[in-house]
C-alpha cells in the first residue's frame, strides 16, 4: 500500500501541487489524470526523488520514505532500450547497475524472455527486432527491477491504435500476472480508461484532485465500450471545468 499525504511542491513560491493525497492499495492499477501542463512532470520528479518534495509524506508499506526512487520501477511510452546492448543485456541492466547476483538474474530474465515470447532473440540488438518485441523487452526490464511498485509515464500516448491495443495487453500483465501495484500519470483520457481500476482526475496548477472514478469494467477493454464513453464524457467535463478555474 502506497500512501501519499499532503504532498506539496512549490515553484517560485507558487504551488505546482499542494495538499495532494493519494492511496494506492497493493495490486491496484491507479491513474492520475490531469490536463497537460498540470504538473505531471513535477509530480513524477517529486515521487522519484529527482526533485525533493517541499511538504508532505510518502509512506510505502507502513514505512515513511523520502521518495520512491529506490522502491519503484519505471516504464515509459518509449521502450528506452540501449541500442548498444543486446535484448538480454538490456533486460539485465537493473541487476547490473545494482551489482546483483548476475547468474540468478540471468536465469530470471531467461524465464521472462520465454514467458513473453522473446526466446531466441536474447542476443539481438533492439534495432534488429520489431517495435512490439522492444516493448516486451522493456517489460522484462521493468520486471527485473524486482520492485512491487511501478510508475507508468504516459505509456500509451502517441501510439497508433494497433500498437496501443498490443501494449495495453502487455501492461495489464504487470497487474494480472506479476501482481504489481501501479501508478500511472497521464493526460490521456483513453489511456486511463483502458487501464485503470481507479481514476483520479486533477485540475491544473495547482494540481488538485477533483474527481475519483472507480472502474469495474473487465480488462482488456475496448475503446468503444458505451460505459467507458459515458465515463469519458464525464471526465472531459471535469477536466474542462478544472482547467477553467
Amino acid at each position: 500500500m502506497l500512501q501519499i499525504t499532503d504532498l506539496a511542491k512549490y515553484y517560485n513560491g507558487q504551488p505546482v501541487f499542494s495538499g495532494l493525497d493519494l492511496q494506492l492499495p497493493a495490486g491496484r492499477f491507479q491513474v492520475l489524470l490531469g490536463p497537460s501542463g498540470c504538473g505531471k512532470t513535477s509530480l513524477f520528479n517529486t515521487l522519484t526523488g529527482v526533485t525533493p518534495a517541499d511538504e508532505g509524506t510518502i509512506t510505502w508499506q507502513g514505512q515513511t520514505v523520502p521518495h520512491l526512487g529506490s522502491l519503484c520501477a519505471y516504464m515509459h511510452q518509449k521502450d528506452l532500450l540501449l541500442p548498444w546492448f543486446s535484448l538480454m543485456d538490456n533486460a539485465l541492466l537493473p541487476a547490473r547497475t545494482r551489482g546483483r547476483d548476475m547468474a540468478g538474474a540471468r536465469v530470471r530474465a531467461e524465464n521472462l524472455f520465454s514467458r513473453l515470447g522473446l526466446d531466441g532473440y536474447e542476443s539481438h540488438r533492439p534495432n534488429q527486432v520489431s517495435g512490439g518485441m522492444r516493448q516486451r523487452c522493456a517489460l522484462v526490464r521493468t520486471l527485473m527491477f524486482d520492485r512491487d511498485l511501478i510508475l507508468l509515464d504516459e505509456p500509451l500516448s502517441a501510439l497508433d491504435a494497433i500498437t496501443r491495443q498490443r501494449l495495453q495487453h502487455l501492461l495489464l500483465l504487470l497487474q494480472t500476472e506479476f501482481a504489481k501495484t501501479i501508478l500511472m500519470i497521464t493526460h490521456d483520457v483513453d489511456e486511463a480508461l483502458l487501464l485503470a481500476d481507479d481514476i483520479f482526475v486533477s485540475s491544473s496548477l495547482p494540481m488538485t484532485l477533483i474527481r475519483r472514478i472507480q472502474l469495474n469494467q473487465p480488462k482488456p477493454r475496448a475503446f468503444d465500450d458505451p460505459d467507458l464513453l459515458h465515463i469519458k464524457a464525464d471526465i472531459l467535463a471535469h477536466l474542462v471545468k478544472g482547467k477553467a478555474v
Partner: peptide, 24 residues
C-alpha cells in the same frame, strides 16, 4: 533525460551510468 531517470531509478552509480549509458 528519460534514460537518465531510468538509470537513477535503477539506483545506478555515476560510474555505472557513465560506462553503460553516457559514454556509449
Amino acid at each position: 533525460p528519460e534514460y537518465r531517470t531510468l538509470f537513477s531509478l535503477m539506483g545506478a552509480s555515476f560510474l555505472k551510468t557513465l560506462t553503460l549509458l553516457y559514454w556509449p
